[in-house]
């Protein structure tokens, strides 16, 4: 029971790390980006390839799993996304679906359609017991890393000048521009960090979620669910939503395997009926 809870929390934390960037960019630019999972996939492949082909140790690959997608993100944002901020949501959906298709087919083309497997270092394998509860070492590692990231994100948003500017831009873009804030620059920086975080999440998640060219599509649904029910007013909403979805998914697969992914969609639709404004509603 507790083991499942901890698995669920680890999974939820991972989802949050992947979804955080999407929540911020959606709140900031009102851009429906279905291709966020593609950046997570890039991070995953960076780690998998670096480990399997270059023989790099797992931990050392993680900074690259952040940096490479962040770089790709900033280029894509400036070259492509920035042109579509003022377009209809239909255009944004079409564009990002096209990106997902291209990322999936392109990865398949270049790297094959097989699952990427990695071998975790010994100290992250197996499980340990606390008060008779078995906890996977890797799960604990995930929780610690992701919790650190969550705290770090909150500090950046809450305490730094960049965070203040970002919040101002989310609240009221025009007013922020009037105050001389470089909103375009903030967009790009946020997009880069969000993509980097997604990539890091993708790398950390190989062990739990697997990694193959269909990853962007698989993760898209989960990440969007987190953002939709969490809302984009703050990061707290998506965080709670991610924990809820993660736990529900793990518990559902354990206790009601015959339902499969049914449960997650049901939870999402029910939450949307009960809290149409998101878990934490934006103040009007």
């Amino acid at each position: 029971m507790l083991t499942i809870l901890i698995d669920g929390i680890a999974y939820g934390m991972l989802l949050f790390v992947m979804a955080a960037g999407l929540a911020v960019t959606l709140g900031l630019m009102n851009f429906v980006n279905l291709a966020h999972g593609a950046f997570a996939m890039i991070g995953g492949y960076v780690t998998a390839l670096a480990m399997n082909r270059l023989g790099m140790p797992f931990l050392l690959t993680l900074p690259f799993a952040f940096l490479v997608p962040a770089l790709v993100g900033v280029v894509a944002e400036r070259l492509l996304y920035a042109r579509l901020y003022r377009r209809s949501h239909l255009d944004q959906v079409l564009f990002s679906i096209a990106l997902v298709f291209m990322a999936m087919a392109g990865t398949d083309w270049l790297l094959g359609s097989g699952q990427q497997l990695i071998t975790l270092p010994g100290w992250l394998q197996g499980r340990f017991e606390v008060f008779g509860v078995g906890i996977g070492r890797y799960r604990a590692f995930l929780i610690v890393i992701c919790a650190a990231l969550v705290v770090g994100l909150q500090l950046i948003l809450g305490r730094t000048r960049f965070g203040a500017r970002l919040r101002a831009a989310v609240d009221d873009q025009r007013a922020a521009r009037g105050l001389g804030i470089n909103v375009g620059g903030i967009f790009a920086a946020t997009f880069a960090v969000g993509s980097g975080l997604a990539g890091l999440g993708g790398a950390l998640g190989i062990e739990m979620m697997g990694l193959d060219p269909t990853f962007p599509l698989k993760i898209m649904v989960y990440v969007l669910i987190v953002v939709t029910i969490g809302g984009t007013a703050s990061l707290t909403g998506p965080f709670i939503a991610a924990l809820l979805i993660g736990t529900a998914d793990v518990a559902g697969k354990y206790y009601l395997p015959e339902l499969g992914a049914f449960l997650i969609y049901l939870v999402m639709i029910l939450l949307l009926i009960l809290r149409p404004q998101g878990l934490i509603a934006r103040a009007r």
Partner: peptide
Amino acid sequence: LRASDLTRLMVTLGVAMLLLEA
């Protein structure tokens, strides 16, 4: 429920996924 495009996307997607799972 909430006439935002994202919610509509997710609701339509969710219904389709529910049906597939079913």
